[in-house]
């Protein structure tokens, strides 16, 4: 009896899986339009969710021009999985891959293999490492915002509220990402220019709870802290909670990055001083349009900078 159950269930699961897979497989085989694969980082991250939604909306309007395959990895640190995805997209016969690499270095060889197979590769969001690109002798066009500039904008806005010598701390993103490093550098540029004293710079690995713990510790160690510069908004939320718990909400200014929906209210209330919008919804669209352009005329690849904007309570 129990055995029969088991067989019945496995047969059911197999059938269900086949039914799910078959139609998508057939659809792909029929089309002659160029297929563009959008390979993102974690879809668990609101930023990439917005990016994906933007790409899908664009595809709906231009459905006749290309087919879109949007894929992402489970969490941002799963670099191996993203490499697999790139290989799968090549195997599926994608004409172009628009990729937001989870690691600025580790994804280069996989993309080089894709290019050798004749696939157009466009780099968005997180820029590939120059040295690795040079070593592999490839040039991959980068379409995306200047994160360092964005962070500097936010830092300069903060600097207007600080005096020289004020103590500030930076909550960094994951240390193996280009955009994380760029944002840290941008914050540092602005703080050094303002003569502020950076007393601590630690990683919150992009996460709210992790940042909360790190910020709590920094607040205990540095009693005169005046501001916290966080490399993304999730970490800024964690920082807001930590300053509140320490009873220092009024004394400490907090800066975020990404302009996610959860910080809108806090920006209005003044819980977060400012954030930076790099237009996630447009980012993938720029990449896709650029890919279509390159597929059409095979032009020499050049980088293309997309806008970054400072968001404060006034600009909302």
């Amino acid at each position: 009896m129990r055995k029969h159950n088991g067989i019945a269930i496995s047969v059911f699961i197999f059938c269900a899986a086949t039914l799910l897979v078959l139609p998508t497989g057939c659809k792909k085989r029929q089309s002659a339009r160029p297929r563009i694969a959008l390979v993102m980082k974690s879809l668990a991250n609101e930023f990439f969710k917005t990016m994906e939604d933007g790409a899908r909306a664009h595809h709906k309007q231009h459905a006749g021009q290309y087919d879109l395959i949007a894929v992402g990895i489970k969490d941002e640190l799963d670099v191996a999985q993203q490499i697999k995805l790139v290989e799968q997209m090549v195997a599926q016969g994608a004409g172009a891959i628009v990729i937001a690499p989870a690691d600025s270095k580790a994804l280069v060889p996989a993309c080089k293999r894709a290019m050798d197979a004749g696939v157009v590769v466009i780099n968005i969001d997180n820029k590939f490492d120059e040295a690795v690109l040079a070593d592999k002798q490839v040039s991959i066009p980068f379409v995306g915002p200047d994160n360092r500039k964005g962070a500097r904008l936010a830092g300069e806005h903060l600097a207007g509220k600080l005096k020289a010598g004020d103590e500030v701390a930076i909550i960094e993103g994951a240390p193996n990402t280009f955009n994380g490093i760029q944002r840290k550098l941008g914050f540092e540029d602005a703080m050094k220019a303002a003569g502020a004293n950076i007393v601590s710079s630690q990683s919150g690995y992009w996460e709210m709870a992790r940042a909360n713990q790190v910020v709590s510790a920094i607040l205990t160690e540095h009693l005169n802290l005046k501001a916290l510069l966080c490399a993304n908004d999730s970490m800024a939320l964690g920082a807001v909670a930590a300053t509140k718990a320490a009873g220092k909400s009024d004394a400490i200014l907090i800066v975020g990055f990404d302009n996610i929906s959860a910080v809108q209210e806090l920006l209005k209330e003044g819980g977060i001083l400012c954030t930076v919008d790099q237009h996630a919804d447009k980012l993938a669209v720029y990449g896709i349009e650029y890919a279509l352009e390159m597929l059409a005329k095979e032009g020499a690849p050049a980088d293309k900078e997309t806008p970054v904007d400072l968001i404060t309570a006034e600009t909302l």
Binding site: L237, G247, Q264
Partner: peptide, 26 residues
């Protein structure tokens, strides 16, 4: 984990002090 993302549409929900009252201040 998947359900959590479906429920929130992968967006962090900022609730504010309406729920913060439970945690109290110190």
């Amino acid at each position: 984990r998947g359900a959590a993302h479906l429920v929130t549409d992968s967006q962090t929900k900022y609730i504010g002090s309406a729920v913060g009252v439970i945690a109290g201040r110190g």
